[in-house]
């Protein structure tokens, strides 16, 4: 007989889960510490976004000629890929909750594959721009472009470690913890919503 997993024990709606809620069935997905970290990261990125907007507003329309050199195709493709990865990851949380661990593991691997594709496209885009002579020091817009995209890619790279933790949890029956899978998903989705804002600020706004 399969041992009862933590996932089953902690599943929303279970007696244990409900007893610890005290909020009409509402609960924080994953560990609250991860949510605190996500909000901390959101504030750090917000400060970058606001500094970028201040510099952009002060420069009038001087950022726009530089922005014309960005390929919106890369930006849109990256956004769609990250949204797809988030869909897989959200599906993984659901699958694990329902005890479908093989499917959940596969969805985590698909999330990682999307992440790899995102990083690969980003490297291709950077090499394309550097090939055109557009580097970190070309102008202020490209300084922000490389800074914001690079710091975001660093978060994606750390996301692979987080996904590895989720995969490890899902592979081993005695280790399975729904809370940890949800915690990993919370981190991954943060990468997604931060990129959505970066995409609007760098590629699309005028």
């Amino acid at each position: 007989m399969r041992p009862m997993s933590n996932a089953a024990m902690n599943a929303p709606g279970s007696a244990e889960a409900n007893s610890s809620l005290g909020n009409a069935g509402l609960r924080i997905p994953g560990q609250p510490d991860m949510w605190a970290f996500v909000m901390f990261e959101a504030l750090i990125f917000s400060s970058y976004f606001i500094v970028y907007m201040i510099r952009r507003a002060m420069a009038g329309d001087h950022f726009l000629p530089a922005q014309e050199h960005l390929s919106q195709g890369f930006g849109v493709a990256n956004t769609l890929i990250l949204l797809l990865s988030s869909w897989f990851m959200a599906g993984s949380v659901r699958s694990a909750r329902e005890g479908k661990y093989d499917i959940a593991l596969r969805q985590v691997l698909l999330t990682a594959a999307c992440g790899l594709l995102f990083v690969g496209l980003k490297l291709l885009e950077w090499s394309d721009k550097i090939g055109e002579g557009l580097t970190l020091s070309t102008n202020e817009f490209f300084s922000f472009y490389y800074f914001l995209t690079a710091i975001h890619v660093l978060h994606v790279l750390f996301g692979f470690v987080v996904l590895a933790v989720a995969a490890r949890e899902l592979r081993s029956p005695p280790r399975r913890s729904q809370e940890i899978v949800e915690t990993c998903a919370t981190y991954w989705h943060m990468i997604d919503f931060l990129w959505v804002i970066i995409f609007a600020l760098l590629y699309v706004m005028r």
């Binding site: 609960r27 949510w35 988030s86 990851m89 959200a90 997604d192 959505v196 600020l201 699309v204 706004m205």
Partner: peptide, 26 residues
């Protein structure tokens, strides 16, 4: 586009991150 980006971020947080099932404070 900035309003749409904020809307998308909210949908990601509410739906994918399951904040809609979290306590009101979050």
């Amino acid at each position: 586009v900035l309003s749409l980006a904020a809307l998308k971020s909210r949908i990601i947080i509410q739906e994918f991150m399951e904040a809609r099932r979290a306590p009101r404070l979050l």
